[in-house]
Design a protein around this nucleic acid. Structure first.
Lengths: 143, 143
DNA sequence: GTTAAGAGGCTACAAACGTAAACTTAGAAT
DNA sequence: ATTCTAAGTTTACGTTTGTAGCCTCTTAAC
C-alpha cells in the first residue's frame, strides 16, 4: 500500500495511521492504548510502528518536551486514494469496472456518497470509450 | 493482496498471475519470456514465483510429460474482488465512498462498465443510510 | 538533589518477499 | 546408448514486515 507521498505503508502501520487520523493528533500513550485495545499489541509494537512511520515521514512529532504529540503528515483521504490507485495499477485495466462494481456492492455507502458517484459517472459517461484494452501483456492483446 | 481463496498473493506473484490469466494457460517457457519482457526478470525468478503460486494453489500443473502446462486455479475477477475487498477492509468505512470516487475518476471505464455501475448504484440508493459510521477506533467514534 | 516511572530509542528475531544461482532430471538429437 | 539441453527443483541471501524486549533519558515527585 502506498501513502499520499507514494511511500509504502504496511498493513500494521496502516492501523496506526487510522488511529492517528481519527484522533487528529495523539500522544504515544494514547496510541499505545488504542492499539492495545484494537489489535492487542504490546506497547513496544506500537512504538516501533510509530517510529517507522516517523522515518517514512507519514507522521511528525510535536511539542518540545516529553510527552510528545504525534500528527499525521499525509492525509487520510489522499493516502487511501493512493493505496487504491496502487492496487488498480497492478491489475488488468479491463477488469477495473467489474472490480469497482464488486466493491460498491460490498460496502456501505451513504446517500451522499452514492449521489456523488452517480454525478461522477454521468460526467464520465460523456467521454467513455466503447472498450477498454487489456494492459497485461506486451503486444497489448485483449484478455 | 488476497486472492479468491483468501491466500496472500504478493505483488510479484500477481504479475505472473496476470500473464497466466491473460494467456489462459501457458508453459513455463512462455511465462519466463513474458516476465522477462514485462519486468526484466531472470528465468529463475519466474520459476520461483510459479512454484510459490503452485504451492499456494493459485496455479495448477497439467499434462503428464515434461513441458507442463500451467493454468490458473483462482479466477481473475474473483481474485481482484478479493484484493479490493481486502484493501477496503483495512480502511475507514467512512472514507470508502470518496476513495471509490477517486478510483472511478482515475480509471478508464467502458460505456458498459459505467452503465453497470449506474444500475448498481440506483439499486443501492434505495436502501442507503444517511450516514456511514467510522469504524477506526473502539467506541465507534466518528472520524 | 535523588529517585521512580513513563516516554522514547535501540536491538532482536523469525517469517515473508524479491530476486536469482546452482543442481537435477527427463525428453530430444545423434 | 550417450549426450545435450530445456524444464523443473532446491538452496540462497539480503530486505522488509510483524512483533516485541530491554536500555536510557527526562520529568515529576519527594
Amino acid at each position: 500500500m502506498k501513502d499520499a507521498k507514494n511511500v509504502t505503508i504496511t498493513d500494521s502501520e496502516w492501523m496506526v495511521m487510522r488511529a492517528i487520523w481519527t484522533m487528529g493528533h495523539a500522544t504515544s500513550r494514547e496510541l499505545i492504548d488504542a492499539m492495545n485495545e484494537l489489535e492487542g499489541w504490546s506497547a513496544s509494537t506500537t512504538k516501533t510502528l510509530l517510529h517507522r512511520l516517523i522515518q517514512k515521514q507519514a507522521v511528525s512529532q510535536h511539542g518540545g518536551s516529553r510527552p510528545f504529540t504525534y500528527k499525521p503528515v499525509v492525509g487520510e483521504k489522499e493516502s487511501m486514494a493512493a493505496a487504491a490507485d496502487d492496487l488498480f495499477d497492478h491489475m488488468c485495466a479491463m477488469r477495473a469496472g467489474s472490480t469497482i462494481a464488486g466493491v460498491i456492492q460490498s460496502r456501505e455507502l451513504s446517500r451522499a456518497d452514492i449521489a456523488n458517484l452517480q454525478a461522477i459517472l454521468a460526467e464520465k459517461a460523456k467521454t467513455a470509450p466503447e472498450e477498454v484494452q487489456c494492459n497485461c501483456l506486451p503486444g497489448d492483446q485483449t484478455c
